[in-house]
Design a protein around this nucleic acid. Sequence first.
RNA 1: GGGUAGGUACCGAAGUGGCCAAACGGGGCAGACUGUAAAUCUGCUGGGCUCCGCCCUACGGAGGUUCGAAUCCUUCCCUGCCCA
Length: 405
Amino acid sequence: MFPSLNEQMDLIRSGAIEVLPEEELVKKIEKSIKTNKPMRIKLGADPSRPDLHIGHAVVLNKLRQFQDLGHTAVLIIGDFTAMIGDPTGKSKTRPQLTIEETKVNGQSYLDQAGIILDKSKMEVRHNSEWLSSMNFNDVIKLCAQYTVAQLLERDDFSKRYKSGTPISMHELLYPLAQAMDSAAIESDVELGGTDQKFNLMVGRDIQRAYGKEPQCILTMPILEGTDGVNKMSKSLDNYIALTDVPSEIFGKVMSIPDELIPRYLQYAAFASEDEVKQMEEGLKDGSVHPRNAKVDTAIRIVSKYHNEEAGKAAFEEFERVFKNKDIPDNIDEMEIETEDGTEGLLNILAKTKLIPSKKEAKRMVEQGAVSIDGEKTDDPFAAIDLKEQKLFKVGKRKFLYVKSK
RNA sequence: GGGUAGGUACCGAAGUGGCCAAACGGGGCAGACUGUAAAUCUGCUGGGCUCCGCCCUACGGAGGUUCGAAUCCUUCCCUGCCCA
């Protein structure tokens, strides 16, 4: 039924930063093979941020590998914790989500995760199921299992504490709440980014305290965003969304710094370790041009989250648009209201939302960022004839056909 | 509860009655150059307008003093640190 122990361990270890404790995992796998029962692999999902990107995909892909080995993915939608409001970050209180919102977001999370996961081997649970019924006694019992010093060991807590940044009580409770999830669903392994290590470890202690067998933990690296510096996140706008269209994914991958290429190949395209090694060496000894390596990686990534034809098509379009300065395939069209078929340039840019404000539009035009039908324009107040459809280009990547209604 | 230091734009941080839409740095955006990379250089970085000028909103919230306030007063909210 299940692949052999070694086979499983090899795949599980690949790409992972840490697997702790490894001997325990070996025992769990042996037991799973012997009893022919799949292990329960936990992954927590945060429905307050329902837009998944390739950074999230790193862990999701690992979870998928477990599924492919025959194990059960248990996806926890953190609807309860989201309702309290996610405390990460600084002083800014996140808007608290209503039950309705977490429902919608949770569903959207599942839809996107479904691009990567095998839905037939997946169990979806909401943590409100067990957390919302806990009363103050239960919470006290839970808190008694842990000490302040232990919680302050967590890197970001201690950093914030030392630097004088406030930490609210409920933030301290977060790791405990997450650990309760592990106890509730009796997970054998929990996955997470390296930033989750602490929380994952707390899960072990709490499971033990509640008489369960402690889980093993597996951490995956945090993928850098397209800027190559910060971790990928929506708020930094350096992300590649799972639902981005192929040309968009392709373009974004092409804009990453060279040093990141092997990492993207490994963690975004989830290529095998051999392939990654091969590319790294090629880049090192100069036999592979960085640009080509990047193109290959971009094709691989598009192919993974869409399909191979889309990967090829995205590549061809990219060549045409940026090498030959041609225009892309699918440009949106928009019709806007005008008095007499003509309209001021700034109004057009603002109405079509090509640029968020007229003030900014004016600046962009003056800096030569806007062209119409391939001709650069530097007069923000020009009246543009829209009786015939015209092609507007803003910056390097925004194209739109506009016509008078 | 007592003491003390603070809350300024995306972030950090100046400014302590008019010259402040707010220095400087980072980030971001755009242009040139490129491999939509990096590095570099240049410009921009609240919104609107009848656009070389005018108007509106903005320095934690609300009031007030003043011809005029981010800057002074009152009050409220929030945070750090020390003491209890």
